[in-house]
C-alpha cells in the first residue's frame, strides 16, 4: 500500500521524466550490465573469501573471550580490546588505512594488492561483530550442559567443542546470516581503494555515459543475491520460533 502510494508520488513528481532518463535508461543498462556483472564476480569472491575467514576467526575470538578464571584475564582483555576497536572504527576507514597503508610498508612476502588488503579489512571489521554474535550464543547455553559434559570426564575443551559450540552456533545462524548480508554490501567499499569490482566499474560507466543507470544495474545485482539470503534467514528464524513454541506447549 505505502509502497504503491510512494511509487505514485515519485512517478508524478515534476522531476520524474529527467530522473527516469538518467537512472533508468534501457540502452545504457544494456551496454553496461554485462561488464558490471562480470566485475560483480569479484565482489562475490571478496565476500565469500572474507566470510570463510570471518566465521573461523570470530569463533576463535569468541572462545578466547569466554575462557574462565583469572589466569586468562589478559587473553580475555585482548579479545575485548579487539572487538571494541574494530566495532568502533568506521569500516571505510579500516579499508582506507589498510588498503593504502599496508602496501606502502613494502613488506617482503606480503601481497600488496588492494583486493587482498580490502578483504583483510573486511575480515577484521566483521569478525568483531560476528565474535559478539558467537559469544551471545555461547552464553545462551545453560551451565548445566557443561556440568553434564564435565561429569562424564570430558575436558574443558572437549565440553566446549562437543556440547557448547554446536548448540551455540545453531542458535546464532540467523544473526550470522544477517551479518553476512551486511558483508556482501560492504564489499562495494573495496572500490574506494581501487579494486575494480562492480561498483567501481559502474562509477566509470556513469562518468562515461553521463548517466546513472549503471548504479541501478549494480544495485540490482546486490539485491539479487541478498533477497534469497534474507528469505532463508526469515525461514530459519520462523522455524526456530516454531520449535520453541512446540516445546512451550508440551
Amino acid at each position: 500500500m505505502v509502497f504503491t502510494a510512494l511509487a505514485l508520488v515519485v512517478v508524478n513528481s515534476p522531476g520524474w521524466p529527467e530522473v527516469r532518463r538518467s537512472f533508468l535508461n534501457v540502452d545504457v543498462f544494456r551496454e553496461s550490465f554485462p561488464e558490471i556483472a562480470r566485475r560483480f564476480l569479484l565482489n562475490v569472491q571478496a565476500f565469500l573469501l572474507a566470510e570463510v575467514f570471518i566465521l573461523v576467526f570470530a569463533l576463535f575470538i569468541a572462545v578466547l573471550r569466554s575462557l574462565p578464571g583469572a589466569v586468562f584475564f589478559p587473553i580475555r582483555a585482548l579479545a575485548v580490546a579487539y572487538t571494541d576497536l574494530f566495532r568502533g572504527i568506521p569500516t571505510v576507514l579500516v579499508i582506507y588505512i589498510l588498503g593504502f597503508g599496508a602496501p606502502a610498508l613494502q613488506l617482503q612476502g606480503v601481497p600488496d594488492s588492494p583486493f587482498f588488503w580490502g578483504v583483510v579489512a573486511l575480515v577484521l571489521v566483521y569478525s568483531a561483530y560476528v565474535a559478539e554474535v558467537y559469544r551471545a550464543g555461547i552464553e545462551s547455553v545453560h551451565p548445566s550442559q557443561v556440568a553434564s559434559a564435565r561429569s562424564l570426564g570430558l575436558s574443558r575443551w572437549k565440553a566446549l567443542r562437543f556440547v557448547v559450540l554446536p548448540q551455540a552456533v545453531r542458535r546464532v545462524i540467523p544473526p550470522l546470516l544477517n551479518d553476512f548480508i551486511g558483508l556482501q554490501k560492504d564489499s562495494a567499499l573495496l572500490a574506494l581503494i581501487g579494486v575494480l569490482e562492480a561498483f567501481r566499474r559502474s562509477q566509470v560507466d556513469t562518468a562515461g555515459a553521463f548517466n546513472f543507470t549503471p548504479y541501478v544495474a549494480t544495485a540490482l545485482l546486490f539485491v539479487a543475491i541478498t533477497i534469497p539470503l534474507a528469505r532463508v534467514t526469515d525461514w530459519l528464524v520462523a522455524r526456530e520460533r516454531g520449535r520453541y513454541q512446540a516445546e512451550g506447549t508440551l
Partner: peptide
Amino acid sequence: FQAFNLFPHMTVLRNICLGPVEAQ
C-alpha cells in the same frame, strides 16, 4: 541430575557414546 541435562543436539545414541568415546 534432577533435570536430566541430556545434550539436545545429539541423538540418544550419541548422548550415550560421547563419554566413552571422547573421555575414555
